[in-house]
Design a binder for these strands. Structure first.
Lengths: 218, 218
DNA sequence: ACCAAAGCAGTACGAATGTCCAACTAGCGT
DNA sequence: ACGCTAGTTGGACATTCGTACTGCTTTGGT
C-alpha cells in the first residue's frame, strides 16, 4: 500500500499551503516588504529553512501565494455561481442590487484591499497577470449569468460596467471617505442606474441626454 | 542679504525633491521592495548618505514620496479644473464622454497602476489615507463641476458613481483583458448610461426595471 | 530488521539593508 | 581674516536578508 507515502505527501502539501497562507497574511498586513523567508516560516510556526525547501526563491513564494489566493477567490465565486440563489429573489432587480450590496458589505475592507493589491501586483508579473485575467473573466461570466437569470437581455454587454462600478467602489471604500452604509447605497444606486439605462437601450439614452443638455446650450 | 542662504535652501529643497522623485520611480517599477536608501540615492545621482540626511527613515521617505505624488496629481487635476475647457464642447454630453475617454487614453497604464497602488498603499497608513481622501474629494469636486457645466442637475450625486466607473475601468485595464480602444469604449458607454439614468430620475428608472423584469417573473 | 531515499531542520555565510557618525565643505556675519 | 553654523558626505556598524550546505529523522521496500 502507498498509504504511508500518500499520507506523507499529504502532510507535505499541507505544510506548503500553510506557508502560502502565512505569506498572504504577511502581505496583507505589511505589503511585499513584510514577506521574508524567516517571517513566513515564523508565522506558519515552522523552522526557518522550510521556506527555502519548498520554494525556489522568495519571489516564487510570494508569486505563488498571490496566485493561490486568486484561485481560491475564484473558486469561492464559482460556488456562489453554482448556487443560483438569485432567482429566489423573485426576479426583481432592485432586490438583486440589495443582494449584491449585502454580499459586498459582508466582505471586509481589509480583504477587499488584499484582493485589489493582488490585482495590481499582477501588473508587474506576467504569470500573475494571467491569473488575474482569468479571475476577471470568471467574475464577468458570473455577473453575466446572474443578470441573465434576472431576465436582462444582452447581459454580456452590461457585465463589464457592473464590475467596474463594483471595483471602483471597492477602491474608494479604502479611503474611508464614506461610511459603509453610504458605500453600499452608492454602489446599489449606480448599479440600478446602469441596469436601467441598459434596459432602456442606447438610442433612448442618447435621446434623453440630447433633450436635457442639448436644448439648454444650443 | 540672505540671497545666498536662500539659494542654498532652494538647492536643498530641490535635492529633496529629486530623492522623492527617484523613490516614486523605483516604487512604480518594482514596488515598495525596490525603494531602499542606496537605490534611491543612486537613481537620483546623489551620494548614499543623502537619503538618511533628508529623511528620518526609509518608511518616511516612501510615505512622503507617495503623499507628494498624490499632491502633484491633484494639482494637475486642479489645473484642468481651472481651464474649464468643457463648455467649448457645446454642452453635448456625448462629446464630454469623448473628452473623458481621450484624457483617459492619454494617461498610460503604468501611471494609472502607480496611482492605484498609491491609493491602496494608503490603506495601511493613516497619514497617507488622509492624502488619498483629499485627492478623492478633489476628483469628485472636479467631476461635479464639469457635470454642472454641462447642465446636469444634482451633479454632486452623480459624481461618485462616475469616479467609481473610471477607477474600476482603470483597475481592469491593468489585466490587459480588453484592448485600449475597448476599455475607452466600455468606460464611455458606462458613463453615458450613468448620466442618462441620472437625468431620467430614480422613479423612471425603477419603473423601467419593474416593467422589464417584474413582468417576466411575476 | 535493515537500508536506500526522501523529507526535514539547524546552521553558516555572503550580500544587502537601515542607520549612524565623524569629518569635510562652503557660505555668512563679524 | 576668521571662526561658526548648516549643509553634506564617505565610511563603518549591526542587523537582516536570501540562500546553500550538512547532517538528522522519518518513511517505504525488502
Amino acid at each position: 500500500m502507498a498509504t504511508r507515502a500518500q499520507l506523507s505527501q499529504e502532510r507535505s502539501r499541507q505544510r506548503r499551503e500553510e506557508l502560502l497562507s502565512a505569506a498572504i497574511e504577511l502581505f496583507a498586513e505589511g505589503g511585499s516588504r513584510a514577506v521574508t523567508h524567516r517571517a513566513v516560516a515564523k508565522r506558519a510556526g515552522l523552522p526557518p529553512a522550510t521556506t527555502t525547501y519548498y520554494f525556489e526563491s522568495i519571489d516564487d513564494l510570494l508569486r505563488e501565494a498571490l496566485a493561490d489566493h486568486i484561485t481560491s477567490w475564484r473558486n469561492e465565486l464559482d460556488l456562489l455561481s453554482g448556487m443560483d440563489q438569485l432567482p429566489r429573489m423573485g426576479g426583481r432587480i432592485t432586490d438583486a442590487t440589495q443582494v449584491i450590496a449585502t454580499v459586498w458589505a459582508a466582505r471586509p475592507p481589509e480583504v477587499a484591499a488584499l484582493e485589489l493589491s493582488i490585482f495590481l501586483a499582477a501588473t508587474r508579473d506576467a504569470a500573475l497577470r494571467e491569473s488575474a485575467r482569468e479571475a476577471l473573466v470568471g467574475f464577468e461570466e458570473l455577473a453575466s449569468r446572474w443578470l441573465g437569470l434576472l431576465g436582462i437581455p444582452d447581459a454580456d454587454r452590461l457585465a463589464p460596467a457592473l464590475l467596474a462600478v463594483i471595483a471602483g467602489t471597492a477602491l474608494r471604500r479604502q479611503t474611508g471617505q464614506y461610511s459603509e452604509d453610504d458605500e453600499a447605497r452608492l454602489m446599489s444606486e449606480a448599479i440600478r442606474d446602469l441596469v436601467g439605462a441598459h434596459l432602456l437601450g442606447r438610442e433612448k439614452v442618447d435621446e434623453i441626454i440630447a433633450d436635457t443638455t442639448g436644448a439648454e446650450t444650443d
